[in-house]
Design a protein around this nucleic acid. Structure first.
Length: 728
DNA sequence: ATCCAGTAAT
DNA sequence: ATTACTGGAT
């Protein structure tokens, strides 16, 4: 046995470097890290060295001697192949250059390795090595507050080691900083094994190299890539907030045509900016982009902010966006951590906690910062995001193609589905309300909700919460009286049913009471409109999903599933669709040119994920709705069979001389209902003419048409424009 | 239906 | 620390 000595892989150069350093320190310059100890420690170390060279006994600084050679790290690394794509294994981290130089070699640091030293000396050595590395690599010196718990505690523990080394030895130390040295403590006598890296973040840099190789080969060609122009990058980053590349891309191109420069944007009217944003959502982004443009233009010389901190001060620019722009355009060493990066990083590191939690986020950011290669800071950030978007997807990651496959901790543990860990969601707040359904001569009372707020602008039945311990029916009656003047509200309504609905942050339990009135009672004026709407026309009113289900129950024949309804939302029996003719309403997601051909076709098909077993778009277009891919297969799982084929072929039934305004509803059809896909099955709506991609199926309203007439197109056209519906 | 996303406002 | 904002994927 070799006793406490653990320097199995010390490298000659490093040894030379360290010994040279130690010798040079003979004068006893105080170590900045441990000024009060270094002198003694250094003298001791030098003495030990002298002893060792005289007697041949081993010391902590002894080279691994010849026995180390046989199973050297280089051999390990060789086994794995010199061009291992993912550099995560222990062996590869210790890969070293040919150990040509001996102890007397020039004190150059190359390669990495372990040195066994006394606990006292270890911190100074690490510091020294880090300094050297910083000098050599130009890495940013570590400064600023160290992350609180870890290093402080461990450095303290280290410094407090008794000279005998018998005190508690931290199981693994890690010297904070930018990757200059790592410290791990092993051994009974408290010898410290110092792993010295050649470059700041040497280990991480190899991940970076593999990543960038992959990125260079597989990156998508996106309009904002290429020249890292601040304006282009900034606009694209704002557009890409909460928005996928495919959706943002056409907007980006149009936007840059309209406002090619910062000055053009700053000079624009907000209305024009918003107009170009229509359909993208999150309109605050556009307003803030515009505001920020004016702020930048007002700077002296309209100079771009350069640092992430400066960008951060602009409206609409958060930590992610600031880091992305600063790194891509101005070479700042700041990781841009978005959802993709969090996912990729959490998996690679095998984070078992929510990567958004501060601790994990710090760890991730530090790791990334160490990995960022100085020459390609922006590319590194983009490559990470690209990896997350293309391969390291939330579901079904394509690990086989991933450059980090071998080193990925989540992959190794078979945990890619569990990582990133998501924080447990709190149980949603429970909310209970009572609603009033007032029927009179085939009409029902509905009201529109305020434009702002939850389900803004949608129509629904009056509802109220319970006051104190009053009966639920009383609460419903109160809601009724608020909108209509009727004596009937004094009566107790009949309980129609109880509906539940889950919203994003609360779950609603709605008790619905029904009143039958002789005739439509006079409406009370209110801030929002109310109407006695014909039951048959309810389909023309945009409603929330919950109110829609109640409306469906009103229209459904008694005893039908929808009529019984309440409990589970009462859809029709699974797998069956209502028969008959119906129209589909498409609400335009953005402005559209006039429709000059009445027979405009709109083709819908399922997302086509398996490229290899499906036809191209032309093949899709060639199929007919009826031939096997239509209603029959719709219950089938996504990936089985030819279900990626055409689902329906819809025809716009009207000409439109005037342009279509965003949000306007267009009637399509009529169609046999069995040809109409469910909204959720439709992830793509294409027309054969450009400009119609943004058409969106709004409401097929499958529940209503069975009673009475389907709302004719004319009537629909006369309706107030359908606001955007948001079922949450 | 449920989950996910970055920023600002609270 | 939560939530609104909006749309897409599954």
């Amino acid at each position: 046995m070799r006793g406490p000595v653990r320097a199995r892989r010390a490298l000659c150069q490093q040894r030379g470097e360290v010994l040279g350093w130690l010798a040079g320190r003979g004068a006893g310059r105080p170590s900045p890290l441990h000024p009060h100890r270094s002198e003694r420690a250094v003298r001791r170390a030098v003495a030990a060295r002298a002893t060792a060279s005289r007697t041949g006994t081993r010391t902590g600084f002894e080279p691994p001697a010849d026995r180390g050679r046989g199973r050297s790290v280089a051999a390990n690394a060789g086994r794995a192949g010199p061009h291992r794509s993912a550099a995560a294994g222990r062996g590869s981290a210790l890969r070293r250059p040919p150990a040509a130089a001996g102890p007397r070699a020039a004190p150059r640091l190359r390669g990495c390795g372990n040195l066994s030293v006394s606990p006292r000396l270890a911190p100074a050595l690490v510091l020294h090595s880090r300094r050297t590395l910083e000098r050599r690599t130009g890495a940013r010196p570590f400064r600023g507050p160290r992350p609180p718990a870890e290093p402080a505690l461990r450095r303290g523990a280290l410094a407090d080691q008794p000279a005998s080394g018998r005190g508690p030895v931290p199981a693994r130390g890690h010297v904070a900083g930018n990757g200059g040295g790592r410290l791990s403590a092993r051994g009974r006598r408290g010898r410290m094994v110092v792993k010295v890296g050649t470059r700041a973040g040497g280990r991480e840099r190899r991940w970076a190299a593999a990543l960038l190789r992959w990125y260079d080969r597989h990156r998508r060609d996106l309009p904002w890539r290429g020249r890292a122009e601040p304006y282009a990058v900034w606009v694209s980053e704002i557009m890409l907030q909460q928005t996928q590349v495919a959706a943002a891309r056409p907007y980006y191109e149009r936007f840059l045509r309209a406002f090619p420069t910062l000055r053009a944007l700053a000079a624009a009217e907000e209305q024009d900016v918003l107009r170009l944003w229509e359909g993208l959502g999150y309109y605050a982004r556009a307003r803030q982009l515009h505001r920020a443009a004016r702020l930048i233009a007002a700077r002296p010389g309209a100079a771009w902010p350069r640092t992430a901190a400066e960008w951060r001060r602009l409206p609409g620019v958060g930590p992610y966006t600031a880091a992305a722009i600063a790194s891509i355009c101005f070479g700042e060493r700041t990781p841009a951590v978005d959802g993709n990066v969090r996912r990729v990083g959490a998996r690679a590191l095998g984070l078992r906690t929510d990567p958004r939690a501060p601790r994990a986020a710090r760890r991730l950011a530090r790791w990334l910062e160490r990995a960022m290669p100085p020459a390609r800071l922006g590319d590194f950030n983009q490559a990470l995001m690209e990896l997350g978007a293309l391969l390291c997807r939330p579901r079904r990651p394509a690990c086989e193609r991933c450059p980090w496959c071998r080193g990925c901790a989540a992959r190794a543990a078979g945990q890619t589905a569990q990582i990133p860990v998501r924080p447990p969601r709190r149980a949603p707040r429970r909310v209970a309300l009572a609603a009033a359904v007032a029927l009179a001569g085939g009409r029902v009372l509905i009201q529109r909700r305020p434009r702002r707020g939850l389900l803004g602008g949608l129509w629904g039945f009056p509802a109220a919460g319970r006051r104190g311990a009053e009966p639920w029916a009383a609460a419903a009656a109160r809601a009724l009286r608020r909108r209509v003047r009727t004596a009937a509200a004094a009566d107790r309504g009949a309980l129609l049913g109880v509906w539940r609905h889950g919203y994003s942050h609360f779950s609603l339990r709605l008790r619905v009471y029904r009143w039958r009135l002789q005739r439509p009672a006079p409406l009370r004026p209110g801030s929002e409109p109310a109407e006695w709407a014909p039951l048959a026309a309810l389909g023309a009113y945009p409603m929330s999903a919950l109110d829609r289900r109640i409306a469906a129950a009103l229209c459904a024949p008694p005893g039908s599933a929808a009529g019984r309804g309440a409990a589970r939302g009462a859809a029709r029996p699974a797998g069956k669709k209502p028969e008959g003719a119906a129209r589909v309403f498409l609400s335009a997601k953005s402005g559209l040119p006039p429709i000059d051909r009445a027979e405009e076709s709109v083709v819908c098909w399922r997302p086509n994920e398996q490229k290899e077993n499906s036809d191209d778009a032309g093949g899709n277009l060639g199929r007919r709705c009826g031939d096997g891919a239509g209603g029959g297969s719709r219950g089938a799982p996504r990936d089985s069979g030819p279900s990626d084929a055409l689902l329906g072929r819809l025809c716009l039934s009207e000409r439109r001389a005037a342009p279509v305004v965003r949000g306007e509803t267009l009637a399509v059809g009529p169609l046999r209902v069995s040809q109409v896909p469910e909204p959720r099955e439709l992830s793509l709506l294409h027309s054969l003419r450009p400009g119609f991609e943004r058409l969106r199926l709004s409401r097929a309203q499958p529940h209503l048409p069975r009673v009475g007439q389907v709302a004719p197109a004319r009537q629909n056209a006369g309706q107030p424009r359908m606001p955007r519906t948001n079922s949450r």
